[in-house]
């Protein structure tokens, strides 16, 4: 608390005691104190108008959150406290790492998220391949990542000269650079002209991603940022490997096609 703020407050003995203890006090569930600053970006709320199918409901009832929250993390970027509601619904998950192919430059694959593309891309791009286990649980079940396991993984990744990922989830959790922002380094050119769908977890990187795609020949006609593919089929070319589970074309299909050709 700043001194100037303190000067505006009448200090009582009780308040003084609480001030001393302030560094050790933490509000565990901040959402109940909020009118819902984040609700306008919550896909389940926007789709229904039902306040309980929004962080206001998910924060009050864990089972509502576990079963209905898309864990898209859009609310976290709107929250002034960045409260990680989407990972508050279940117990911790430990991340583990398997090195499948060792090279100086590796592609990081997330089990049950992007193997459909990462194995093939790793072959064609000539990179190594590392598989991370546990990420899908964070984003599908709302489980926080065990901090020690996260530290171990980050330490292990420092052993490689370059690490890229194609999963927004890997980028979000591990801050691994996105392959789609670095395609020019692999001399990839794409010939796509049409709408581009930005995944929820990559909204804050939209500008950089679009610039990078334009530099390799992509011509976006429209940017779609309000659709969560966990809820609906996105219009346009998706930048998320998960979209293939909905039979939606992704940029990775385009990349594989151009590399195979």
């Amino acid at each position: 608390m700043k001194l100037k703020t303190l000067s505006t407050v009448k200090i009582t003995p009780k308040l003084l005691l609480n001030l001393i203890q302030l560094p050790f006090k933490k509000v565990e569930k901040p959402c109940i104190y909020c009118p819902g600053i984040c609700i306008s970006v919550c896909p389940t709320f926007i789709n229904t108008g039902n306040l309980s199918l929004s962080p206001l409901g998910y924060s009050r009832y864990e089972d509502l959150g576990r079963n209905n929250c898309l864990k898209c993390w859009r609310c976290v970027s709107e929250c002034p406290l960045s409260y990680p509601l989407p990972e508050s619904y279940a117990s911790e998950v430990k991340l583990t790492l398997e090195v499948l192919k060792k090279r100086e430059t590796v592609l990081l694959s997330a089990r049950n998220l992007d193997e459909k593309y990462s194995y093939g891309l790793s072959e064609l791009l000539g990179t190594g391949l590392i598989l991370i286990n546990g990420l899908v649980e964070r984003y599908d079940e709302g489980r926080p990542v065990n901090p020690s396991s996260l530290k171990r993984i980050l330490r292990a990744l420092k052993n490689y000269r370059k690490v890229y990922t194609i999963s927004p989830e890997s980028h979000h959790t591990l801050s691994v650079p996105l392959l789609i922002e670095n395609l020019s380094g692999f001399s990839i050119r794409l010939n796509y002209n049409g709408p581009i769908h930005i995944p929820c977890l990559l909204l804050n990187r939209e500008e950089k991603i679009i610039q990078a795609l334009i530099s390799i020949g992509v011509r976006p006609t429209k940017i779609i940022r309000d659709q969560c593919l966990k809820m609906e089929e996105p219009d346009g070319l998706s930048l998320c490997p998960r979209a293939s589970m909905r039979n939606v074309k992704t940029i990775f299909d385009e990349i594989l096609a151009s590399l195979s050709y």
């Binding site: 009780k14 909020c34 600053i37």
Partner: peptide, 19 residues
């Protein structure tokens, strides 16, 4: 930048101070 933030002060100061 901060005009819609109605909770930071509440959660960080007001509530922990018993106010």
């Amino acid at each position: 930048k901060k005009r819609f933030d109605v909770i930071s002060d509440v959660v960080k100061l007001v509530v922990p101070l018993g106010l």
